[in-house]
Amino acid sequence: MHPQLVAIVDEFERAQERLHRLADRTDDDAWAARPHADAWSAAECVAHLNLTSRAYVPLVRGALAERRASSETAPARYRRDPVGWLISTMSGPMPRIARRRFGRVRTAAAFVPDGDLPRATLLADFDALQAEQIALVRHADGAPLQRIRVTSPFDARVRYNLYACLVTLPAHQHRHLEQAEEAVAAALP
């Protein structure tokens, strides 16, 4: 498998391990606690990631189906297009200056979690979706990912290449897992 795709799989696996470490050391109260009224709990962060994965799995699967129609092969090095670079940068963990975080983005309504799902359900869904995303990255090996375009499910006006999309997904997971860790830390005495 292409080394850049191996790196993406590694990031997905690190995110999954990170989530399970957090879930294993967190009681139910801290798991469901919001640090303040306009922040998500750890449970809501995971629910958001599951909503996002459910939107992207068919999108990536469909984009890879286009691959079969192309005889073009993978380049020696994948590159994100400018829009994809911006999206992947904005979707990853938020930078900090002193104690202030920068880069908050309002989430589209379809991706705002609602309701309280049991932790076991959230984790099982996350794991199943993670396995699908990892399989899709492996399936992408050899594809001209720079040439395949996807439309963001967050905003239909935004299009970027599939390589940038694949880079963005685990970065986005790490962003919200950091947020989940902070929510749990705020809930602990």
Rank of each mutant, 00 (worst) to 15 (best):
H2M: 06
P3H: 07
Q4S: 06
V6I: 13
A7I: 09
I8P: 04
I8E: 02
V9R: 06
E11L: 09
E11M: 11
F12L: 09
F12V: 03
A15W: 02
Q16Y: 08
R18G: 12
R18D: 14
L22K: 04
L22M: 06
A23G: 08
A23V: 15
R25E: 13
R25L: 10
T26R: 09
D27S: 04
D28T: 13
A30D: 13
A30L: 04
W31M: 00
W31V: 04
W31E: 02
A33Y: 09
A33W: 09
A33K: 10
A33I: 03
P35E: 00
P35I: 00
H36W: 12
H36G: 11
H36A: 13
A37C: 05
A37L: 11
A39G: 02
A39Q: 07
S41A: 11
S41D: 00
V46I: 06
L49T: 07
L49I: 13
R54Q: 12
P58F: 01
L59F: 04
V60C: 01
R61H: 08
A65D: 15
A65I: 09
E66K: 14
R67S: 12
R68I: 10
A69P: 09
S70T: 14
S71V: 13
E72G: 14
T73Q: 14
A74V: 08
R79P: 01
R80P: 12
V83S: 07
V83K: 08
S88F: 06
G92K: 00
G92Q: 05
G92Y: 01
P93Y: 01
P93N: 03
P95Q: 09
A98Y: 15
A98M: 15
R99A: 12
F102I: 11
A108E: 10
A109W: 07
A110P: 05
F111C: 05
V112T: 07
V112L: 10
G115Y: 02
G115T: 07
P118T: 14
P118V: 14
R119M: 07
T121G: 11
L122R: 03
L123W: 10
A124E: 15
A124P: 12
F126V: 08
D127A: 15
D127G: 12
A128I: 01
A128V: 03
L129W: 08
A131R: 15
A131S: 03
A135N: 09
A135I: 05
V137G: 01
R138L: 05
H139L: 13
A140D: 05
A140V: 07
D141T: 11
D141R: 03
D141I: 08
A143E: 06
L145A: 00
R147D: 14
I148A: 04
R149A: 10
V150K: 06
P153I: 04
P153G: 05
P153D: 09
D155F: 07
A156N: 10
R159Q: 12
C165E: 11
V167Y: 05
T168D: 06
T168Y: 08
L169F: 03
L169G: 06
H172M: 00
Q173I: 08
R175T: 02
H176E: 00
L177V: 01
A180H: 05
A180S: 04
A185M: 01
A186D: 00
A187G: 06
L188A: 11
L188S: 11
